[in-house]
């Protein structure tokens, strides 16, 4: 995967329907190539909507989004990891990867499976995989797309603690190796503290960016001490001192 593109967001307003109240407003951001930006905010604030707009899945808004100077629709499709693994159940794991984007060759698909530790599951159908394996397959599919833009929409939700750690390490390795521009939507500050070098906190109605935090130390070398320190910074910005879920 090539080093990722830069993103320029200038979103004046986003409404779900013409007469509905705006959900997002006044979001002006520049996201650097190869950076990892975590977007935090309470459920229903519009985090996933923002990702869908960046991926070109939602074009009904006023403003503009540029990915290396192109609109999301014209830019190469991003590697998108949805909240659910969203593998096509009628295709094997390998075929799910091979059909990514405009189609990838078998060698690329197998390489993506190898990186996510799923080589032995290539011929299985999604129903034959555990929840954690399905998530990794979904990540493998995003990796195989090689667009340089990796979008992760709550990729660790409903996984148990051990699997979350395993998935976070996997994502950290991928980020360090490929340097994609990564957008991570999460409601867990720990995810951001572990993986992001920049944290955007969305709040309000309509939602705006209320805090923009830059976290030092490279993602791959982050130890427990760094993560704890980053977590305090994030929680401080959120306004909570105790439990992470916002």
């Amino acid at each position: 995967m090539a080093r990722g593109p830069s993103l320029n967001l200038s979103i004046a307003e986003k409404r779900y329907a013409t007469n509905a109240a705006p959900v997002l407003a006044g979001i002006d951001l520049t996201i650097a190539p190869g950076s990892v930006t975590a977007i935090l905010g309470p459920s229903g604030i519009g985090k996933s909507t923002l990702l869908r707009m960046i991926a070109g899945l939602d074009t009904q808004f006023s403003g503009s989004i540029q990915i290396d100077g192109q609109s999301p629709i014209d830019a190469p499709p991003p590697g998108f990891v949805f909240q659910d693994p969203r593998l096509l159940p009628w295709l094997t794991v390998l075929d799910n990867i091979r059909t990514a984007g405009q189609g990838v060759d078998t060698a690329t698909a197998l390489s993506a499976l190898e990186r996510t530790g799923l080589t032995s599951a290539a011929k299985l159908y999604p129903r034959q995989l555990s929840g954690g394996m399905q998530r990794r397959a979904s990540l493998a599919r995003a990796l195989a797309m090689s667009s340089g833009l990796l979008i992760l929409d709550e990729p660790f939700v409903s996984l148990d603690r051990a699997l979350v750690g395993e998935m976070q390490d996997l994502v950290a390795e991928i980020i360090a190796a490929d340097q994609p521009t990564t957008l991570l939507v999460t409601h867990m500050p720990e995810d951001a503290a572990r993986l992001a070098d920049r944290v955007l906190i969305l709040a309000g109605q309509p939602a705006k960016v209320v805090a923009d935090i830059h976290l030092p130390s490279p993602v791959i070398f982050r130890d427990r001490k760094d993560i704890t320190s980053h977590l305090r910074t994030i929680e401080g910005a959120i306004g909570f001192r105790t439990r992470p879920e916002i």
């Binding site: 899945l57 096509l88 984007g101 405009q102």
Partner: peptide
């Protein structure tokens, strides 16, 4: 609808969408 969204995220053309999402 989530597979439809996946197809759009992948920018699959109609023929591919039919083969991979619709017909199955």
């Amino acid at each position: 609808p989530e597979y439809d969204e996946l197809a759009r995220a992948m920018r699959w053309p109609l023929a591919r969408r039919l083969r991979l999402v619709f017909i199955p």
